[in-house]
């Protein structure tokens, strides 16, 4: 996370209000200047691609970009805002995210065996709002049927090729930005003239990039992606440990984040229980239901013909 916050130019959008109540209801958000130029950007809740819990995303319709909102929080911290103190010391950061990652789990789940028109696939849970932000599905899915219906079928091979390309591009950026990717600690501010990232093996960068991309993928996809790169086992061990310890460090902030989003979602009238019920229901697929799903493969969805009232 820290690596990406560096790319942002900081700007404080807290309203400098002397009213204590207003301070309590505000939060600190670091955003790019370009986002602030757009006065109509909106924040929505979508299921996180990895764990499916609601997470916040910011839509910038002017620049056609989606940002994810990341909360960084440490205990024992507060903000001074004007003359008042805000007890919640967390920082929210917006970082751009490729919307394809957000729809990938849904695409994989629903369109593995049959093609579904995009409008139907992305009709619920706020997905409809991000439909326009996705330039093309061609890199992860095959177009089936007439082009104007936009019915897509998930293609694992294409997806993996696309993800591999993402990882390779990311690893190049990591090298350019001189991000420290090997195990062990170095000082970020320590600069020497002769030691640079140039002599570090390409594989370290790839491994690191693969880890970063995997943070947006479900476990089975992350595993398949890792297998594609065929990393050397010893490399996985050293770097793997590093990633793990990083994850452990991140754990508290993540938990706080999910609590915060839960609170938010309650305010929006979203009942978290309902999503749990759904998960339960999906688990209890009987043999009969599976047979029915199999029988349904190759058939268009009925909602492609009948419009919702």
């Amino acid at each position: 996370m820290t690596t990406r916050t560096k790319k942002k130019s900081g700007a404080n959008v807290t309203p400098p209000s002397p009213l204590k109540k207003r301070v309590e209801n505000s939060w600190i958000l670091l955003a790019k200047d370009s986002l602030l130029e757009n006065s109509s950007f909106s924040i929505i809740s979508l299921p996180h691609p990895v764990h499916g819990k609601p997470a916040k995303y910011c839509l910038d319709d002017e620049h056609n970009k989606i940002y994810e909102i990341i909360t960084f929080d440490e205990p024992h911290r507060s903000w001074f805002i004007g003359e008042t103190v805000k007890s919640d010391g967390s920082i929210q950061m917006v970082t751009p995210v490729n919307p394809l990652f957000l729809v990938l789990p849904r695409l994989k789940e629903q369109c593995s065996s049959r093609a579904i028109p995009l409008e139907d696939l992305l009709s619920e849970k706020g997905y409809d709002k991000i439909l326009d932000f996705i330039p093309s599905f061609d890199s992860v899915a095959d177009l089936k049927g007439p082009a104007d219906m936009k019915a897509y079928k998930y293609n694992e091979e294409k997806t993996m090729t696309w993800l591999e390309d993402r990882v390779r591009r990311l690893s190049k950026v990591l090298r350019q930005k001189n991000i420290h990717v090997t195990s062990g600690a170095t000082s970020a501010t320590f600069v020497t003239s002769n030691i640079s990232n140039d002599n570090i093996d390409e594989e370290f960068f790839l491994k690191y990039a693969c880890g970063m991309v995997s943070e947006y993928l479900q476990e089975d996809m992350a595993e398949t992606l890792e297998k594609r790169f065929n990393f050397k086992p010893d490399l996985i061990e050293t770097i793997g440990n590093k990633r793990k310890s990083e994850v452990e460090n991140k754990e508290p902030s993540k938990r706080i984040k999910s609590e915060a989003t839960d609170l938010d979602s309650k305010e929006n009238g979203f009942v978290p229980n309902s999503s749990f019920n759904e998960v339960k229901k999906e688990k209890a697929l009987t043999a009969k239901e599976k047979a029915r799903q199999k029988a349904a493969s190759g058939t268009k969805t009925i909602s492609a013909f009948f419009k919702k009232k």
Binding site: D120, R292, A296, T299, S303
Partner: peptide
């Protein structure tokens, strides 16, 4: 109502 697979109504 539609069935779970959304192919019939």
């Amino acid at each position: 109502a539609m069935d779970n697979s959304h192919v019939s109504l």
